[in-house]
């Protein structure tokens, strides 16, 4: 079937996607890289001068960079822990037969379809608000002083909000994986007297390993660039207490107009994401051969 003619046709069919993506990736990324070596402020157009590695130096040197980097990692790891452990538990529970399975499943998946700005504002106002929020009402009813979540524990609150959005994703994927678990093997193990814990440890968990890896890696990609949730809840504050790397780049370049410094931050974010991406690509690449 593969004649020279059809080969050429195939190439023609693929090329629009390739060219578009190439332009989308190479051109702006190249510009960011170029800007990152310039002294370039939007308030002083036409005054760009070569800065060498100064932007990188100043970006890394400022205390808020290290805070933002730590926050980024805490945010990613915190959400990952909650969603993976919660997801496994929830998937195991939902995989049991019970009345109304379909409805519960639909309820559990729902948060994934809620847009980030809505989920953040719903949590911020209806639940975490220190005066009118549900948590505050609950605390008062139990005789405690209500907590102002977003100013007293901003990062933890954002982790909670983001985990709520991503728990359904982890649960859904792990549940799909659980359903392909060989139930005969399970029964055999049970018959041989294997307890619940050892069945989980030696049968279920190994079966889930691949799906867990996929969940971790894909979530990491999205979690590294969380932005909307921070913008509408804390705006990065108080101070920089809930600023992550994307938010720092945004506030430096588009709010403080420092294009050079922001670009250096953008390149650092790209490098960070690439380290993660390499692992993910290997995983998916392996699957492609299977």
């Amino acid at each position: 079937m593969a004649t020279a003619h059809s080969r050429a046709l195939a190439r023609l069919m693929v090329s629009p996607s390739v060219i578009l993506l190439l332009m989308w990736m190479i051109v702006p990324l190249g510009m960011t890289l170029y800007f990152s070596f310039l002294r370039y402020n939007l308030l002083m157009p036409g005054m760009e001068t070569w800065a060498g590695f100064d932007n990188y130096y100043y970006f890394i040197q400022q205390p808020s960079f290290w805070i933002a980097l730590t926050n980024t990692l805490v945010l990613v790891l915190g959400v990952l822990c909650i969603t993976v452990i919660g997801g496994i538990a929830l998937a195991l529970l939902l995989n049991q037969p019970f009345r109304g399975q379909g409805i519960v499943r639909v309820m559990v998946i729902a948060p994934f379809f809620v847009m980030p700005t809505v989920s953040a504002l719903v949590w911020k106002n209806f639940f975490m608000n220190p005066v009118n929020g549900m948590f505050a009402h609950l605390a008062k009813a139990l005789g405690f002083a209500p907590l102002d979540f977003l100013s007293q524990a901003p990062l933890a609150s954002i982790i909670l909000i983001v985990s709520w959005s991503w728990l359904p994703f982890a649960t859904l994927i792990l549940l799909t994986a659980l359903q392909s678990l060989d139930s005969e093997q399970m029964e055999a193990a049970e018959m041989d007297g294997a307890g619940w814990l050892s069945r989980f440890r030696y049968l279920t968990l190994p079966h889930l390993t691949r799906s867990i890896t996929v969940v971790v890696l894909i979530q990491t990609i999205f979690l590294l660039s969380i932005f909307a949730e921070i913008l509408v809840t804390t705006n990065g504050g108080p101070g920089v207490a809930s600023t992550n790397l994307p938010f720092l780049v945004y506030s430096q370049s588009l709010l403080s107009f420092d294009v050079g410094g922001g670009s250096a931050g953008g390149i650092i974010a790209v490098i960070l994401a690439n380290i993660v991406a390499i692992f993910l690509m290997r995983m998916i690449g392996k699957n492609l051969d299977a």
């Binding site: 990736m25 800007f35 932005f227 588009l254 294009v259 993910l280 998916i284």
Partner: peptide, 18 residues
């Protein structure tokens, strides 16, 4: 295919300014 996927991994802030 892998290369196309890799473009998805690029964080948006990396190209925000341009």
């Amino acid at each position: 295919l892998m290369w196309m996927l890799s473009t998805k991994m690029m964080p948006a802030v990396g190209v925000l300014i341009p």
